[in-house]
Write a protein that binds this DNA or RNA. Sequence first.
DNA 1: GATAGCCGGGG
DNA 2: GTGTACGGCTATC
Length: 792
Amino acid sequence: MLRTVEGFLIDADYETAEGKAVVRLYLRNSDGSFVIYDDSFSPYFYALPADEPERVRERILTSDTAGMVRHINVEEKMLFGRPRVALRITVRHPQDVPRIRKRISEVEGVEQILEHDILFVRRYLIDRGIRPLTRMRLDVEDRNGRLFLRNVVHGDGELPELKVAAVDIEVYNPRGAPRSSKDPIIMVSIATSEGMEKVLTWKHVSGVEEVEVLDSEEEMLLRFAELIEEGDYDVVVGYNTDSFDFPYIRERVKKLGISLPLGRLGAELEVSRRGTLPEARIRGRAHVDLYPIVRRHVKLNSYVLESVVEELLGIKKQKLDGERLFAYWDEGGEKRTLLARYALEDARVTLALAEKFLPLYCELSTIVGQSLNDVARMTSGQLVEWLLMRYATPRGELIPNRPAGEEYAARASATYTGGYVREPRRGIVEHIAVFDFRSLYPSIIVSHNIDPSTLIVGNCRENRAPGLEYCFSTEREGFIPAILRELVHRRGEVKKEMAESSGERRKMLSFTEKALKILANSFYGYMGYPRARWYRRECAESVAAFARMYIKQVMRIAEEEFGLEVVYGDTDSLFVVIPPERRELAQEFLMRVNESMPGMIELEFEGFYRRGLFVTKKRYALLSEDGRMVVKGLEFVRRDWAPIARETQREVLRILLEEADPEKAARLVREVIERIRQRRVSLEEITIYTQLTKRIKSYRSIEPHVVAAQKLKERGKEVAPGMIIGYIITRGPKPISQRALPVEFATLKDYDPEYYIDNQILPAIQRIFEAIGYTRDYLKEGITQTSLSRWF
DNA sequence: GATAGCCGGGG
DNA sequence: GTGTACGGCTATC
């Protein structure tokens, strides 16, 4: 019996029935979740014949393949853009591939085995053209209550709200680090997209309405699985759940001898290995660990949940001492209540983090064409690679192998020159116009057709990378440029549509746009990524060389044709002096430049700035027309600088940029130094805050904040990883780190003025003053330097 | 300054 | 599961 269903793919895997792999597609529509089966797809890989394909085919068929080979087709394929006859070897079961490929590679006349390591379900999604999280119409056949796929058509339509559950566990740890063989899980907290909040536990907790007390750890875990099953969640999220929570749950489940059906179709929680890292799999759902995702997207000093949440969501969250959680449990009463609240808070903020990142990863999953579960674990290089693989097969391109051993080592050690950075004109510069190239690296790849298949090495002229012996044929568009062009084009279309839409639609489009941007910007890095299947150092090197040529060419046009002074530039940008009365030059210059740029390479006008202060390459500050300061590479926004140093730096920059008065800035510095010497400062101004990221014991080098934390502990204060330690540096003969005193115990007479002057104030402003010709001595003591006059 | 080795998050 | 991370920081020469 045939019928049609609609749904969105959440996850996919396969089961084995009668020796054959049957794909299971886990889908959701507005009515709920369901599974579609497909037994019509067989695993295969390729062998490249070194001589007559038919003869090699016969040799394989007559060799000892233990009946695993179903058939061998001779196919006309391409490898790096060149025609290549390949033998497609179809086998019965995915696990036959590793068993048989070694034997076939030893058959006479077999040059190479290709596409042997592409996991069955991922290959299935590519070959069937199925994209996760997009609307699909599926023609299915009902066989004894199971729906088998006959045909699939993609359609339009917005993804229904995914059901998301954020999960966190607390563990009994009387010895500090919990041992899964002995120490039970004491709480499981859950917060879901539908607003359900629960803390499951097995001892009495008072005053927390979300708490549900079960009889035992075992009952608690089973209740957890039941809640996930009942809520029919598509996505389970957590923080470091791949490495901690789920492996721990898995161990306890084994120990207790129970079954924990967290997955759809009653599938057990599985913990396997992805590289050296564990990975927890919940079949039929996506398990998304937000810890690696946050690490990929934001640069922070520490990724403990508390600081991540403060940084990204502005939520200040108390951390309990992880070492002593067991005591909260044992003590009961208010302490246990605190533990339960802490557990719930962890699940809540994890859900909030998921709301921030999941839409982007859903887009990436659809575009790249692999499951959300997999895409959530991919680096940008892997995202590009799976995108390329999806395009390769329908184009008849064979997928190259990943490098191993010596090949990888050779690639990894290869280096080449990167972007061009112009030495800045140091000091204060008036009236600056900033220009930058739009998506320079992707534009170069597309415009110069940079691809492994178009690369010509040595003795070539046309479309040659500047200063290198590499040219790129323009006869046929390369595989990578073609895909990248489509991506860039789609991004342009999405941006256009964004401009015309609002509200939820616009927000959705912004994630699509961001996903396309991430992918487009990763292509250059991909070609130079040593593990890439389509790696080609010469290509990455050429992209960088073209970029250097373009930015230098633009600088030359500015200087020679327009008589403009270029004061700075980095990779794809240039900073030019344009006085207010000659502003029309900016547009003229832009037009002149873009006339001369090939393909899609385009310079854009970024903005006018009243003034700039250039210190060194990558360290400068600008004052915009509307009075905003833009500071690069100079900022001591980090909290491990005393506020007085940060404030002084900021004020110095402000005076230099707004008033262009170095003497006034120098006077300010001397005043601050004087204030420090006379102790006319507040404790707040001199307190340095540093986060304790781990246990005191596990610090190898003794840093000041660790010493301060030790002193806190000695005086009976609770100290936990994730805590922000505030301290001042006191006088004395010991090394600086030993002189850290927790601010709680400090008074103004304790601090060491010379430390604050020499190690805080002066380093923060020294580089800035050096750029305008002032020395440290001049600032500190007022000793005049003869070199000064030439700067003013 | 190069290079080898370690470590992250979680309780 | 058709498989086996990675990038940044510190220590040490």
